[in-house]
Structures are given as C-alpha cells and as structure tokens.
Simulated assay, not measured.
Amino acid sequence: MSSLSLPQKRFYRQRAHSNPIADHCFNYPRTPDEMDWSKYYPEKMLDSNIKAEVDIVDIGCGYGGLLLTLSPMFPNNLIVGMEIRVKVSDYVMDRIAALRCQHPGIYQNIACLRTNAMKYFPNYFKKGQLKKIFFLYPDPHFKKAKHKWRIVNHNLLAEYAYALTEGGLVYTVTDVNDLHVWMVQHFTEHALFEIVPQEETKKDPIIEKLYSSSEEGQKVSRNNGNKFLAVFRR
C-alpha cells in the first residue's frame, strides 16, 4: 500500500465481539502524566491554539467514522478513538495516516489507540480533562451473565465522571432498546450525571451526525433499524 492509498477494510476484518474481561497485551501509561500524546498529533502539538491534551473521546470507535466526522467540527480539539480489536484499530490508524497524506493539514487532530477502556481508561485521562465522551452502538452483550461486560456500568460511570469536566457531555446511541434503557437507568441513577432534555439536544449540531457517521450506524440505517439516543451531562 502506497502512502497515499486508503486502506481497504476487507484486509482488516475481525470478529465483531471481543471479551473485555480477558487478558490482552496492551501498552498503557501508569498515570495520565506519563502519556505522550505528541506522537499521535505531531503537527497539532506545534499549534499554539491547541491545548496539548485530548479532550474528546470515542470509546469503541470501530472503523473510525465518527472520528472523521468530528475532526473538522472541532479543529482546535484533540480527539482520540479507543478500540480493543487489533485489526480494527490498525485499520483506523492506517486510515488516518493515509488521509493526512492525501489532505495536508487536515485530520491532524484525530488519532486511535488500541486499548481496553474498561480496564485502563483512568490511565490516560486526568481529572476533569474531557469535554465529550461518545458511546456509539456499543456491544449490547445480550446474555444476562455478560451484562458485566457492558461499557456502561456503575463502576465505570465513576471513572467517566472523574475524567469529565463539569458540564461535560456523554453521548450514547444504540439500536438495541434494552441497552438504551440500561444506559439511561445507570446514568440517571448516578449522582454525578443528569440527562440532557430532548429540546436541548435538538440544538446540538453533533446530534444529527451521530446516527450515521459510524459504520455500525450506516448498517442500522440500511436495515431500517431503530436508533435510540440519550445525552448526559456531568
């Protein structure tokens, strides 16, 4: 593949599900202060208008569709996608690298990490660092015995709240009503989150992009599936 060629997804196919509880080989910082973001955003780190730390996160970023959508919307923010599947994260990294070559000066504010957010999220982000967190079409883990694998649960909400600044937002979209009810219940029952009223979300320019920016969202649209949205404020 030449430096200007976009990667072909068929060479990066992988199982849709990954066990987040299993042991995987990951390199991760011991603390957020040890995380070197400069290698992920080398051009942006030279820009005096950019704060040199990530403040927008797409957890379970899949093939990176949302990252590409957010990049021009937030040119002065650093955005990272976190993905546990090795081939999928490789695809996103190669895709971003190719797009940077094809469009100099663009897509410099997005990057992808292969990591397990359920285990290592606090290793990357300091208290109050984040402004936005996205969960688009997370694995529903249908079986009751596997509900503990869901990326939204009581223990993890404390970690998300710690990393979010006051007023920071969490966006969730799923095509599974049971998971939507689960996420709404867990967020609204948590003392540090409140649901954002629908009339307020309608004014948010991000909302219309969430339904189909990701590959999973596009698949749901092709299948005429339902999409359930909820936004929560720290």
Rank of each mutant, 00 (worst) to 15 (best):
S2A: 06
S5G: 00
L6Y: 06
P7V: 10
Q8K: 15
Y12P: 07
A16P: 02
H17Q: 12
S18I: 15
D23N: 15
N27I: 12
N27P: 01
P32Y: 08
P32D: 10
E34Q: 13
E34W: 05
S38N: 11
K39W: 01
E43W: 01
K51L: 11
K51M: 06
K51F: 01
E53N: 12
D55Y: 07
I56V: 14
I56H: 02
I59A: 06
C61Q: 03
L66M: 09
L68A: 09
T69K: 14
S71R: 05
M73Y: 01
N76I: 01
N77R: 15
E83H: 02
R85E: 07
V86I: 11
M93L: 03
D94W: 00
R100S: 06
R100I: 02
C101K: 15
P104V: 01
Y107Q: 07
M118E: 15
K119G: 07
Y124S: 05
Y124V: 09
K126W: 00
K127H: 14
K132N: 01
I133V: 15
F134E: 04
L136E: 03
P138K: 00
D139K: 08
P140F: 08
H141Q: 13
V152P: 02
N155T: 14
A158M: 11
G168N: 11
T172S: 15
N177S: 13
L179E: 10
V181M: 11
F187G: 09
A191R: 14
Q198F: 11
T201Q: 03
T201A: 11
D204S: 08
I206Y: 07
E208M: 06
Y211I: 06
S214L: 05
K219E: 08
